[in-house]
């Protein structure tokens, strides 16, 4: 067994008595077989009995022990302490998943997470035959589509790693999208259309995701919520739920532009997505960009077909013609 000294800077706060949080430092001799939860236990058992955190299963199943180490979302019971020091050095900063939601030390108020989980109706909606004569079977292929999403343990790691959650209170967030996808793709579910509509709404839905991939990086179950978000986007078009708006026209507009030029016509896609009336918001910026030479006059009037074209454009056009599967 190998050991070394590790300095833990630990976020401490009691919403009942403290005006501001503070950090307390603990030095522990840590061995290479300890997980981060062992260190939390040792702070509580060896140093300060009032130190608070959630844990239950110690097997990466209950989702209670989520914290952040040097900004990285982890399950404390899953992450080896030595591995954390390989990533971040021998001083580790332990914080709750969301500092602004801290109640006591590592314990946060997770009510926004559960409200959003509930908002996507995370259960199969189907007419139940009370006296079934056989099992309700789904194929291996159907199972494969939803299996990893079904592994979600609602730990909140992705949700509290998502920057949009911090800016936009309406946004469902990556974990709720995983659940929405999990049931939308379930062949036994009758509410796919409603699920896709709810996750297509501006503000709360998938179009407000900034594609930062923080959720994929955070998930301890390797679920890649952003992949499910991409699937939800595409399902809106596949199942004809998508309505024409700035976000859907923007996604579809890429095909239109690539067909014409091979490249994206940057000015045209803004006009196409916003519509001519929506352009008023962009006039000041467009003026500044023209002034700086970012929108070119040299090949003709901007927005009118002055974009360079790819060589062998006809190949690209042919591939679009034979490969395009969705329409707006």
């Amino acid at each position: 067994m190998h050991t070394k000294k590790v300095t833990l800077k630990v976020f401490r706060f009691n919403a009942k008595t403290d005006y501001l949080p503070y950090y307390k430092t603990y030095e522990l001799e840590v061995s290479d077989h300890e997980v981060m939860l062992d260190l939390l236990n040792r702070i509580k058992w060896e140093h300060d009995g009032s130190f608070s955190y959630r844990r239950s299963c110690r097997h990466g199943i209950c989702g209670a022990c989520g914290i952040k180490v040097n900004g990285k979302s982890i399950l404390a019971c899953k992450e080896n302490a030595f591995e954390m020091t390989h990533l971040f050095g021998d001083e580790l900063i332990l914080e709750p998943q969301s500092k602004k939601r801290a109640i006591k030390d590592m314990i946060i108020d997770k009510s926004d997470f559960w409200a959003k989980h509930e908002a996507v109706t995370p259960y199969v909606i189907a007419d139940i035959d009370e006296h079934p004569e056989h099992e309700n079977q789904i194929s291996q292929a159907q199972l494969a589509q939803m299996l990893d999403a079904d592994y979600c343990i609602q730990c909140g790691a992705c949700h509290y790693a998502c920057p949009v959650i911090e800016v936009n209170d309406e946004f469902f967030g990556p974990a709720a999208f995983v659940a929405a996808y999990r049931f939308a793709i379930d062949s036994r579910d009758n509410a796919t259309h409603e699920r896709l509509e709810a996750t297509a709404q501006m503000g709360q839905g998938v179009w407000d995701c900034v594609k930062c991939f923080e959720c994929q990086e955070a998930c301890p179950k390797d679920i890649a919520p952003i992949e499910k978000i991409t699937r939800l986007h595409a399902m809106q078009f596949e199942q004809k739920v998508a309505v024409s708006n700035v976000a859907t026209r923007h996604a579809e507009g890429f095909v239109r532009s690539i067909k014409k030029h091979g490249f994206l016509d940057e000015a045209d896609i803004v006009v196409y997505s916003e519509g001519y009336l929506g352009m008023y918001k962009h006039l000041t910026t467009a003026y500044k960009m023209i002034k700086a030479g970012k929108i070119h006059w040299n090949d003709g009037f901007p927005w009118v077909d002055n974009v360079p074209k790819s060589k062998n454009l006809e190949e690209i056009q042919k591939l679009i013609e034979i490969s395009q599967t969705n329409k707006l």
Binding site: H233, A234, S257, S310
Partner: peptide, 26 residues
Amino acid sequence: LEEASCCGASHLQDFDPFLSHVLNAR
């Protein structure tokens, strides 16, 4: 690469993931 086309900028795959793969593979 004069023949190259747009990568889809993380938006094309929202609309048509298969097409996005075909164009990027090209």
